[in-house]
Design a protein around this nucleic acid. Structure first.
Length: 270
DNA sequence: GCCGTCACCTGTGGGC
DNA sequence: TGCCCACAGGTGACGG
């Protein structure tokens, strides 16, 4: 589901709702969400507190009061809700953090794709899964993307979805970035010029910034509580099959690239 | 080691 | 209406 702007929106909401509240227990009804023994998660979190929430690419990181961090990836449909103890448990609420104030933080995931990892503060950025992450567009240096794209021979769309190359983009924003950059998603990554790579970086930064300001994109839903993003109103190409290209008027078509639904203007994007 | 495909899950919407 | 199939905002495993 969520790409960088959505995860950032969730992070900001969580920071308002869950910091510095003693956790008195954790319950789970689908243990595969946690990579490891759920008993260990329960043991570490009990009598602990979340003191900060960070984000790296699409990963959320709960910084705990002791020496641990809990890394959470929402994948396609993960969501967090804060509810009261005793509120009915939805069948898609898989991990529940019980606070001592009668509130819960509940991890909800319809498709059960999301994953959590426990790491320690001394090295969590240097080990799996965060150590492989590429730079976010905001922090990319001139020429950095070009050098990485040149080492690969895949569709440019596939390369931009690869979080080890560039962190934060997903299917929606890659379509938007390639449209703004006038680059066809079927181009090979190692045929992208330095100028084009820099343009992609610049547009990725712009799109992510704007989407984050608007609270992300809500096509189906994502939320902490019921916060919806507004960027879907700003989409230029993604989901617009059959509509006219906002630049040239040509019909927008939907194709498959790397198995992903991809929206493209064949006239503008070369 | 690189690249393409499929599996992981459940829900929804379109076509018949 | 009901059934079946394709598809959904992500990633990792596997095989060629």
């Amino acid at each position: 589901m969520p790409e960088l702007p959505e995860v950032e929106t969730v992070r900001r909401q969580l920071k308002k709702l869950v910091l510095n509240k003693p956790i008195i227990g954790v319950t789970s009804n689908y243990e595969k969400i946690f990579n490891g023994n759920i008993k260990e998660l329960e043991k570490v979190l009990t009598n602990n507190e979340i003191i900060d929430v960070e984000r790296y690419g699409k990963y959320l990181v709960f910084i705990l009061k002791d020496n641990h961090v809990l890394i959470s990836h929402l994948r396609m449909e993960g969501k967090y809700f804060v509810k009261n103890e005793g509120d009915e448990i939805n069948k898609h609420e898989h991990i529940i953090f019980h606070f001592n104030n009668n509130q819960n933080l509940r991890y909800h995931d319809t498709r059960k794709f999301g994953r959590m990892d426990l790491r320690t503060k001394d090295n969590y950025l240097k080990v799996d899964p965060l150590h492989k992450l590429g730079s976010e567009p905001e922090f990319m240096k001139e020429g950095e993307l070009y050098n990485l794209l040149n080492k690969k021979n895949v569709f440019i769309k596939v390369a931009l979805l690869d979080q080890t190359i560039i962190a934060g983009l997903g299917n929606i924003y890659v379509d938007e970035v390639l449209f703004l950059s006038k680059i066809h998603p079927n181009r090979r990554s190692n045929e992208i010029s330095l100028e084009e790579a820099n343009l992609i970086t610049k547009n990725a930064k712009l799109v992510l910034e704007k989407a984050t300001k608007l609270g992300g994109t809500t096509i189906k839903s994502f939320s902490v509580g019921e916060v919806d993003g507004l960027f879907q109103n700003e989409l230029l190409i993604h989901t617009k099959v059959g509509e006219s290209c906002p630049v040239c008027g040509e019909e927008i078509v939907k194709i498959k690239v790397g198995g992903r639904g991809t929206y493209v203007c064949n006239n503008c994007q070369k």
